[in-house]
């Protein structure tokens, strides 16, 4: 997506790091730890949090009350990250997340945002015609479900706790987590039970 860094920008970065280290502001270890944390963040983290909330009522309550603490309870370091809020879908309400101003995204638990999340088209359209945008993902909400578009404009970062699909009774957390994709966590898609389970 982005072009490779130029030699002069790499040299500039190295000078900046050297100056920060000389002033005692960062250490090599801190930089390495942050790099590892950034590399590790992926939608699988958010998916594990959702799956656990589906099977563990106490964790679900924590997730909805304090997303940051719930992420830390799953071993995610939230140090320096914006607070995480989690919004619960219900049989009559569906959430979809956008940042109309820029590209605010819960990177600590989902990793880097996909290009479409940052596109002008998604940001401009989803607040205005959310159902049309969802339909383009093949996401058609059942009758009677209201849409709540969450415009992430300031200090929080938001993630969706979707409804657990029917037909997944007795499933393990790992099996449930596999239903929860990045798009589900942003709210443009719904978790799909496997066809066999749906047919039962």
């Amino acid at each position: 997506m982005s072009p490779p860094p130029r030699p002069d920008s790499i040299a500039g970065l190295e000078r900046l790091i050297a100056a920060l280290k000389a002033k005692g502001i960062v250490t090599e270890e801190e930089l390495a730890a942050r790099q590892a944390q950034t590399d590790k963040a992926s939608p699988e983290t958010g998916a594990r949090m959702v799956a656990r909330a589906w099977v563990d009522p106490a964790y679900r309550a924590l997730l909805l009350r304090d997303g940051t603490a719930a992420a830390e309870a799953m071993g995610v370091s939230m140090a320096g990250a914006p607070p995480l809020g989690v919004l619960e879908d219900t049989p009559t309400r569906h959430h979809v997340i956008v940042c109309t101003l820029c590209s605010c995204y819960p990177r600590a638990v989902l990793g880097y945002p996909p290009p479409w999340y940052k596109s002008f088209a998604y940001r401009a359209r989803v607040v205005r015609e959310p159902r049309a945008v969802l339909a383009e993902w093949g996401t058609v909400l059942p009758p009677g479900v209201e849409v709540r578009v969450v415009d992430s404009t300031a200090d929080y970062r938001w993630m969706v706790l979707p409804l657990r699909p029917a037909g997944t009774e007795g499933w393990s957390e790992g099996r449930l987590a596999a239903l929860v994709t990045r798009d589900v966590l942003v709210g443009v898609a719904l978790p799909q039970p496997p066809v066999a389970a749906a047919a039962e």
């Binding site: 205005r128 015609e129 159902r131 849409v147 709540r148 578009v149 415009d151 929080y156």
Partner: peptide
């Protein structure tokens, strides 16, 4: 807000 859309739908924003 937009003079379009489905009644009942809402936008939730940090202000």
């Amino acid at each position: 807000l937009w003079r379009e859309g489905e009644p009942g739908d809402q936008v939730l924003v940090e202000i």
